[in-house]
Write a protein that binds this DNA or RNA. Structure first.
Lengths: 248, 248
DNA sequence: TATGGAGTTGTATAATACGCAATAGTTGCG
DNA sequence: CGCAACTATTGCGTATTATACAACTCCATA
């Protein structure tokens, strides 16, 4: 596991640039990485040469460059799951009136890779590229419950009073989700937001992703949850079938 | 302009991974960069360690990793222009029934950074992260005509018979766009697709981006173009006003 | 005008990434 | 079924290359 130091440092710089909402100065970068200013300067200049960083001409500080957007698109458009899922996401919005999302597993979190927005003016959008925890989101739970060899998170941080923080409770909860074929997030991640999601499975029945809907608790009343769940489950099933066909 | 070699090589590898739709092997990477296989292997391993590359367990080949999606989102969400533009994009879709797009200048090309889809089943979508040439798209022409110090492209490749390939013709065309306050793409980039776009300008009147609509030529008849142009111009003007206010 | 802070550049050193060669693992063909 | 050709990975000595230190420049501020 030989690691190229200067490449690793460059990647870390990109992450620092991404983490800070304000442009970052060379000195800060150098301090955070524990390297000299000169090294940081040259690394970030190299990033800038290739469009991965950008220098604010005024402040001489650096922020992320537009090249990362291109790479992201390249990855997303080459993802068969994403293409196949799109019509189902649209269908979900049409049938439920809520925003629909598609996520995959990345770094042991749920990575949102597509979204179709609801026409309602009050809606729950989650930008493409967002990472969310597995234990308190409907998409995350679907990935947990139906994924192959997905370990339970070590920590179960609480985001609202309803977040499940006990591993044993979560285990039972996931068991339930497996039985039902779908997972629910009942204001466990964000106040006033409920979600329903179901896994997209491959030919082995293991999750390669998850799709679901999110909406304000007002519209996603508990009485309507089972109806919505059925709609989501249908869509995820049909999408899973399509994905299995694609397997060579 | 000292460049860190191994970081540059790592970035180039990411671009190669992005360019190929199929996963790429170490040997190919090494050949294309003109370096040894061992170096390529170690570089791509480092990328993989940080989530910027992923190894297909079956073929041992590499593709882009999910980390780039995160970086992209981080960049896009921190872009004030994008937030401000969203309602105007929605408004454009509402008023014209066509897809609306937002682009900025990146690497002397038009980089699409947001999109709102039309509800019509026949629609012209351009994924976020797409790069398009400046000389034959409405958004690109807007950036060219109203940008500060944007050089005319050296080459004007033809994509359709209507593409403007003569620099002098383009110059006059841009002059016209400047006078009108908007730019048109009349099937110059893609058959059957017409676009109208106008610049988003800062307090100096220089373009920081452009918004516009794209639709099938059938619906975007030449008789309706001036109506649509007025709608786009209004939206871009209002958005420009908002962006000027934000300037400190 | 001086001063303190920023980022960039010059340079010698030594760490580091490099290429070569050998190994291990896989696919394909006879 | 076994050999051959190809793949990716690892060990290792060398020299390139990235590094840290320091000098320098550019700005803002006092």
């Amino acid at each position: 596991m030989a690691e190229i130091q200067s490449l690793a440092r460059g990647l870390k710089i990109m992450e620092l640039l991404a983490a800070d909402s304000e442009p970052v100065g060379i000195t800060d970068l150098a301090d955070e990485l524990g390297i000299d200013k000169s090294s940081a300067s040259r690394l970030v200049q190299t990033l800038a040469n290739y469009g991965y960083a950008e220098q604010d001409p005024q402040t001489r500080r650096y922020r992320l460059g537009p090249q990362v957007v291109r790479l992201s698109r390249s990855l997303l458009t080459r993802m068969p799951l994403r293409d196949e899922a799109k019509p189902f996401l649209r269908q979900l919005v049409e049938r439920t009136g809520e925003c629909a999302h598609l996520a995959i597993l990345a770094q042991n979190q749920a990575l949102y890779i597509d979204q179709v927005e609801s026409p309602a003016s009050l809606r729950v959008t989650t930008g493409v590229g967002t990472l969310a925890p597995l234990h308190c989101t409907a998409l995350g739970k679907s990935l947990l419950a139906f994924g192959a060899n997905v370990p339970l998170p070590d920590e179960l941080p609480a985001f609202t009073p309803r977040t499940i923080t006990n591993p044993e409770t979560l285990r039972i909860h996931l068991e339930e989700a497996r039985r039902q074929g779908y997972a629910i997030d009942d204001e466990e991640y964000e106040y006033g937001v409920r979600c329903i999601a179901a896994p997209v499975v491959d030919f082995r029945g293991k999750a390669i992703g998850a799709i679901g809907i999110s909406g304000p608790a007002g519209r996603m009343g508990l009485d309507r949850m089972s109806t919505f769940a059925e709609i989501v489950r249908q869509a995820s099933g049909a999408l899973s079938d399509r994905m299995s066909f694609n397997r060579t």
